[in-house]
Amino acid sequence: MFYRIPKFNYYRASTLNEALDLVSSLNDFKVLAGGTDLVIDLKVRRYTVKNVVDISRIKELDYIADDGDRVRIGALTKLQSIADSPIIREKAPVLADAVREMASWQIRNVATIGGNLCNASPAADTAPPLYVLNATLRLVSKEGEREVPITEFFLGPRKTALRSRELLKEIVIPHEPDCGASFLKLGRRNSFTLSVVAVATLVKVDKNKFADVRIALNSVAPTPVRARKAEECLKGKEISLNNITEAAKLVLHDISPISDVRASAEYRKDMSVVLTRDSLIKSLERVGIKV
């Protein structure tokens, strides 16, 4: 036995109300969804807590709902359910693409989308697709509910806009037809790995011009980021390989990568540019445009 998890008290909530009661009455706690981040963090003592509130049984937070003009995903929906969902494949395929490449089958069967977001790793792979899809997060506490755009949710590594007794309830994705989006992830190997950098892009086109462009990256800043400069540079411009290549270089304005065990900062910078270019090309292909 390499790891021994320090003792804690265990509480299980079966409904959202029960969970909110627990987190508003306890101190020194962590909530447990799939536990694929938290159990390891307890093992390596990144966190030590007195109380663990298991929310994984809250059925009312495990759903993928199609409301026509938007898709709602419950925070406790498993990654594998998202990868397999016909609704997500049709209305937010870029999210399905990203989730399919996350971790491994065994982990995706347990891990939740809410856990991936609330863990707030700079490498969270659901973040770039949700950034370009302009997703909103619905947070809930005893005091009520509020909505936060996903771009305002991450505050730093492991830091989010969640207040201490607040839970993530659902992710809301507006459905935008007529756009093309793609996700590219570079890791140290081809699968079962965290990203060195990952990029999601989304494009809307009007004749031969970019009508809208959204670009998001992970693992190259303290939080996942939108590359606004590159986006602005392309909007209204003619679709050409040259314009794409030039704009992709501007992602360097919005990123601040560090060197770590996975890659050096220099390599991350170079790859951010390359992946942005390639992802834009792929997103255009999805609306039938070859550059």
């Binding site: 265990y10 536990g35 694929t36 159990v39 298991d54 065994q106 347990v110």
Partner: peptide
């Protein structure tokens, strides 16, 4: 296999 799906038993708490 947990309810038919493969999972890792090393990172699941038994209480879960």
């Amino acid at each position: 296999l947990l309810n038919g799906s493969p999972v890792y038993s090393c990172t699941l708490l038994t209480v879960q």
